[in-house]
Design a protein around this nucleic acid. Structure first.
Lengths: 135, 135
DNA sequence: TTCAATGCAAAAGTTTTGCACCTCT
DNA sequence: AGAGGTGCAAAACTTTTGCATTGAA
C-alpha cells in the first residue's frame, strides 16, 4: 500500500516490506492478534520474515504510537492498530477480544485527577464476560 | 494466623505453612507484588519454600477468588488480595501500582450490557500516568 | 556508500510440569 | 493410611539480544 509507506515515512521509519506487511495486517484485522499470530498470517506472503523482526517492528510501532499493546491476561500481548483510548471486551466463552466505544471514561479520569491528584496519561479498560453471540 | 487458616479451610484448601505465608504476605502489603517478589519476601521466614510452590499457590488462590491477578504491562503478573473489582493506577515515574476506589464504573457496565449486549462478569481498569508524589 | 533493518540462533525471563518425597487430615 | 502438597530440576513459552548479512536511502 502506498499510504502505509507514507505513514511509516512520516513517523521517521525506514520503509521495508516487513514493516508494511505488519502494519497492513493490523489495519485489516479486528482480531487483536499477538506477535505469533501476525507472524503466521504473514508467512505465506512473506516467507523470509522472522518472528524476531515482528517483535522488533511492533516495538517500534508501539513507541511511535502506530499500534497499541493489549494485555488481557494471556501469556502473550495482543496488538491493535486503533491507537485512540478505547475499552476492550474479552469473551470468556469464545475468547474473542473486541473493541468497544463508550462514553463516560473522561469523567472518571477527571475524578481521579481531582480526588487523588493522579495525572492520567492513558488508560486500559478490559471487560471480561460473555459476548452477545455466546449468551 | 488463625484466621488465615480458617479462610483457606473454608475454601476447601488444605492448610499448609506455605499457603498461610503467601496469603498473609498479600494481605499485609499494598505493593501488588509478583511471584518473584513474594518468594523473596518469604525466603527469610520460609527458607525451604520454592518459587514453583508460590506459583501453584497463587494459581489455586486465583481460582478460588482469594486473590486477583493484575496485568499492568510488565513481563510478570502482580497479585492483589483485594478481590473486589477496583481500578489501579500505575505511575510511569516511580512504578508504583496503587489501588483506587472510584464510583462510576457500574454505569459503564450497564451501558455496555444494554448497547452491546455483552454480559460483564468482571473488569480491569488500569490508569497510567504520574502519581501525586512524582508530579 | 552508509547506516539501519533483517534473520538466525542463542539467551533471558516467566511460568508450568513431572516426579519423588513429605505432610496435612 | 491416603490424598494431596512441596521442592527440585527440567521443560515450555514468550520475548530479547548479538551479530553477520542484506537492503533502503
Amino acid at each position: 500500500m502506498q499510504e502505509t509507506a507514507q505513514i511509516l515515512r512520516e513517523k521517521g521509519l525506514k520503509v521495508t516490506p516487513q514493516r508494511i506487511a505488519v502494519y497492513n495486517m493490523l489495519l485489516n484485522t479486528k482480531e487483536h492478534p499477538n506477535a505469533e499470530t501476525i507472524y503466521k498470517a504473514l508467512q505465506p506472503t512473506n516467507p523470509t520474515m522472522s518472528l524476531a523482526t515482528v517483535y522488533k517492528t511492533l516495538d517500534y510501532f508501539k513507541q511511535l504510537h502506530l499500534v497499541q499493546e493489549l494485555n488481557v491476561g494471556e501469556p502473550s500481548s495482543r496488538y491493535d492498530a486503533i491507537v485512540c483510548c478505547h475499552p476492550h471486551t474479552v469473551c470468556s466463552c469464545c475468547g474473542k477480544v473486541e473493541d468497544l466505544f463508550v462514553e463516560g471514561m473522561t469523567e472518571i479520569h477527571k475524578k481521579v485527577e481531582e480526588e487523588f491528584h493522579f495525572h492520567v496519561d492513558s488508560e486500559q479498560l478490559i471487560l471480561y464476560g460473555t459476548c452477545a453471540r455466546c449468551q
